[in-house]
């Protein structure tokens, strides 16, 4: 049951976005978030929606996948939209001539919030669908590199992240096994009050942690046997490179970004 979880949601196909330098994608994503929160006017939202559509299109990832990404947070979107709709002070907006407590300002804020959230989720999905977890951690490591000058352990952080990602399926499988073993001996994880259930988790978590520590120990020995000495002097199988493709993508994005700023602040 737990095995079906897809990890990092990477969608392994070949597209322009897949071939971009992960650093480019991460930076564009961060700026995209900034733009989404800066946007105030309808026109700038149109520009951002257009940009998001463009990204979805060139990622070659089926649109269905993006909707799947939206599903888990659909309730949050609806909930925040409703709150904004009813709780914002302002001019009354009658529906079919009746006043139902909705304000004009409320409707605008609700629409804005919903659009923002949807755009954010699609943006982050686009990043994780087109970038493998390995490339993502590599990109983060390279981006944080300047911080290592002041003693920030960038390589260690990236290594920890990628190992953590690698071990998720292994640990999920292990959890599954432990649950089954405990159930076979009469343990029950899904009955009783919330406290009872929480308590029932202890006999599952303890063996899981012990085995995780043992795994960590073995992994450390295996890594040392393969000459791992930390980040210094390490090369990569696939060196990430900033190419003309990345330049084109960056310029293209900056144009959209400039549009948003122009529409919001100058226009």
């Amino acid at each position: 049951m737990l095995k079906d979880i897809t990890l990092g949601q990477y969608f392994p196909i070949d597209s322009f976005l897949h071939r971009l330098d992960p650093r480019t994608k991460i930076l564009i994503f961060i700026l995209d978030i900034v733009a989404i929160f800066m946007a105030q006017t309808v026109e700038s939202y149109v520009v951002l929606i257009l940009f998001t559509f463009l990204v979805m299109l060139i990622s070659k990832v089926p649109v269905k996948m993006y909707f799947k990404g939206l599903k888990p947070i659909l309730y949050i979107i609806v909930f925040t939209a409703l709150l904004n709709l009813f709780l914002t002070q302002g001019e009354d907006l009658p529906i079919f001539g009746y006043s139902v407590g909705i304000t004009v300002e409320g409707a605008i804020v609700a629409a804005k919030m919903a659009t923002r959230l949807v755009l954010l989720i699609i943006g982050s999905s686009a990043l994780t669908y087109t970038t493998s977890p390995m490339a993502l951690t590599d990109g983060i490591e390279k981006l944080l590199k300047p911080l290592s000058k002041i003693g920030f352990p960038t390589h260690e952080l990236a290594m920890m992240m990628s190992i953590a990602i690698k071990f998720i399926p292994t640990l999920i499988e292990e959890t599954d096994k432990i649950i089954k073993a405990q159930q076979a001996r009469g343990a029950s994880f899904d009955t009783g009050s919330i406290f009872k259930r929480a308590k029932a988790l202890i006999p599952m978590l303890v063996p899981l942690f012990i085995s995780a520590f043992r795994r960590a120990d073995e992994l450390a020995i295996a890594m040392e046997s393969r000459c791992y000495t930390g980040g210094d002097g390490r090369t990569r199988l696939k060196e990430i490179k900033f190419t003309h493709k990345d330049l084109a993508a960056t310029i293209c994005f900056l144009m959209f970004f400039a549009c948003v700023i122009f529409l919001d602040f100058i226009f």
Partner: peptide, 16 residues
């Protein structure tokens, strides 16, 4: 096994 793609894992030692 350190990496989450086979070839990246095999590359681990030479990378080091």
């Amino acid at each position: 096994i350190v990496a989450n793609v086979v070839e990246e894992d095999v590359a681990f030692a030479p990378e080091n």
